[in-house]
Amino acid sequence: MGHGGNVIDELVTDHREVEELFTKIEELPPGHKDRKTYADQATIELVRHSVAEEAYLYPAVREHVAGGDALADKELEDHAQAEQIMKDLEGCDAGDAEFDRLVGMLMSEIRSHIADEEGNLFPRLRASCPPEQLDQLGDKVRQAKKTAPTRPHPAAPDKPPANKLLAPGVGMVDRLRDALSGRGKLE
């Protein structure tokens, strides 16, 4: 991912890409091996997206939006729940009985989170944050996604500065593991 535009446009495009992966999962029959590959691809994109939001979007929400602390805290809670589901899903194959339950929970959680961000948080941020700053945040988010982890790390810090310091190193290790294992690649 990395599309250009302000932070809201960037993140909405990410949301659409994840929804496309969810649709691919739903279109395949239970147990089909490609469902795991698409779930891994969704996890990779969601983790990168979440790390970038936690590093740049939510601090901006805290700074610019009235009631931003409560909004950002709720979003971080949503991320923590989704990240735990992704961590549990990581250990399942498409044929495992638990896979369908977990992927269903993940899709429900993420779809609810997306609806909340796009219907509530993004309009409020757009109304209260200068356009130049939204553009700068878009650039920062794109940069963060390039070095972000690709695997869920539920115990990792989710607030600056610790998350900004640790994410690139963890991301490098994750990308190496993905390259060696072929994770997220269709056969």
Rank of each mutant, 00 (worst) to 15 (best):
residue 1 M to C: 10
residue 2 G to A: 13
residue 3 H to P: 06
residue 3 H to V: 07
residue 5 G to F: 01
residue 6 N to A: 01
residue 6 N to M: 00
residue 7 V to Q: 01
residue 13 T to A: 13
residue 16 R to P: 04
residue 19 E to G: 04
residue 23 T to R: 15
residue 23 T to I: 10
residue 25 I to H: 02
residue 26 E to P: 00
residue 26 E to D: 14
residue 27 E to S: 11
residue 30 P to L: 05
residue 30 P to M: 04
residue 32 H to R: 03
residue 34 D to Y: 14
residue 36 K to G: 03
residue 39 A to W: 07
residue 42 A to S: 09
residue 42 A to E: 02
residue 43 T to Y: 05
residue 44 I to W: 08
residue 46 L to I: 11
residue 46 L to V: 03
residue 51 V to I: 15
residue 52 A to I: 07
residue 53 E to D: 05
residue 53 E to W: 07
residue 54 E to Q: 12
residue 54 E to P: 04
residue 56 Y to L: 08
residue 59 P to C: 04
residue 62 R to S: 03
residue 63 E to I: 01
residue 63 E to K: 15
residue 63 E to C: 01
residue 64 H to W: 12
residue 69 D to Q: 13
residue 71 L to G: 02
residue 71 L to N: 02
residue 72 A to Q: 07
residue 73 D to Y: 07
residue 75 E to L: 13
residue 75 E to N: 11
residue 77 E to W: 10
residue 78 D to V: 03
residue 79 H to L: 07
residue 87 K to A: 14
residue 92 C to R: 12
residue 95 G to N: 10
residue 96 D to V: 00
residue 96 D to C: 02
residue 99 F to W: 07
residue 100 D to R: 04
residue 100 D to A: 08
residue 102 L to T: 04
residue 102 L to R: 02
residue 104 G to I: 00
residue 106 L to Q: 05
residue 106 L to T: 03
residue 107 M to V: 13
residue 109 E to N: 11
residue 110 I to R: 01
residue 110 I to E: 09
residue 111 R to Y: 00
residue 112 S to I: 04
residue 112 S to K: 11
residue 113 H to M: 05
residue 116 D to L: 08
residue 116 D to C: 02
residue 117 E to S: 05
residue 124 R to H: 04
residue 125 L to E: 05
residue 128 S to C: 03
residue 129 C to H: 01
residue 130 P to E: 06
residue 132 E to P: 02
residue 133 Q to C: 01
residue 134 L to A: 00
residue 136 Q to R: 15
residue 136 Q to A: 15
residue 137 L to W: 00
residue 137 L to R: 02
residue 139 D to L: 13
residue 139 D to V: 13
residue 141 V to F: 09
residue 143 Q to K: 14
residue 147 T to G: 01
residue 149 P to N: 07
residue 150 T to I: 12
residue 151 R to K: 13
residue 153 H to E: 05
residue 159 K to H: 14
residue 160 P to A: 13
residue 165 L to G: 10
residue 167 A to T: 06
residue 168 P to F: 08
residue 172 M to F: 09
residue 172 M to C: 10
residue 173 V to D: 05
residue 179 A to S: 13
residue 181 S to G: 13
residue 182 G to V: 03
residue 184 G to C: 08
residue 186 L to R: 14
